[in-house]
């Protein structure tokens, strides 16, 4: 891959994210899982999400990091919950590229994300569940379908995502995390938080 070639400079847009002190220069396990799950939440919010991800990659000129669909697939499969997991690591540059893509897509979806988070909060105040709202429950259903189709059942159960209720809670948690990605410093905040408890 081009990534391993130090002669190709990383796209400038990634410079807004600092490189944390990771001795092996790769993204930690939990970070890989969260990045893939955030993309999964975006796909559940926007039905054309998977195409939009690739479109944003081209728009932001991140082609040198994510040259094609297969590369994106490989990067997302570094999530250990996946049915097909990759033994190859996710480099910091690749991780940054995904964060930038997530931040960009989240900003585009700001209206939807904000509305869903507000709805969720109103439903809690009314003592109702997230399933009581048509739009929110469709999001949850799409997320559950994606999750079930792509994640390994036993590994997910190990992480506590065995029951549909737990997957719903995860989907709502990811939704509010995406809300924070829409902010002015959202990408930086997300990126730094990925390394919480991982740096020395």
């Amino acid at each position: 891959m081009q990534l391993t070639n130090p002669m190709v400079p990383a796209p400038l847009i990634l410079d807004s994210l600092p490189s944390p002190a990771q001795p092996d220069g790769t993204c930690p396990r939990r970070a890989r899982m969260r990045l893939d799950l955030l993309l999964l939440a975006i796909e559940a919010l926007d039905t054309s999400g998977s195409e939009a991800i690739l479109a944003v990659v081209r728009e932001l000129e991140l082609d040198s990091v994510v040259p094609d669909r297969v590369a994106l697939w490989r990067m997302r499969n570094t999530n250990f919950l996946r049915r097909v997991t990759q033994q190859q690591p996710l480099t910091l540059v690749e991780g940054k590229a995904i964060v930038v893509v997530i931040g960009f897509l989240a900003r585009r979806l700001t209206g939807v994300i904000r509305q869903y988070v507000l709805t969720q909060q109103q439903l809690i105040e009314q003592g109702k569940g997230a399933e009581d709202d048509f739009y929110l429950s469709s999001y949850l259903e799409r997320f559950r379908t994606h999750f079930k189709a792509r994640m390994n059942a036993s590994r997910s159960a190990e992480m506590g995502y065995g029951e549909p209720g737990a997957v719903n809670a995860l989907a709502l948690e990811l939704l509010s995390q995406l809300l924070f990605c829409t902010g002015t410093s959202g990408m930086q905040r997300l990126w730094i938080s990925l390394f919480d408890g991982e740096v020395v």
Partner: peptide
């Protein structure tokens, strides 16, 4: 912004 060090976890 800085990540939380391992020892605090």
């Amino acid at each position: 912004l800085s990540s939380v060090a391992k020892k605090f976890v």
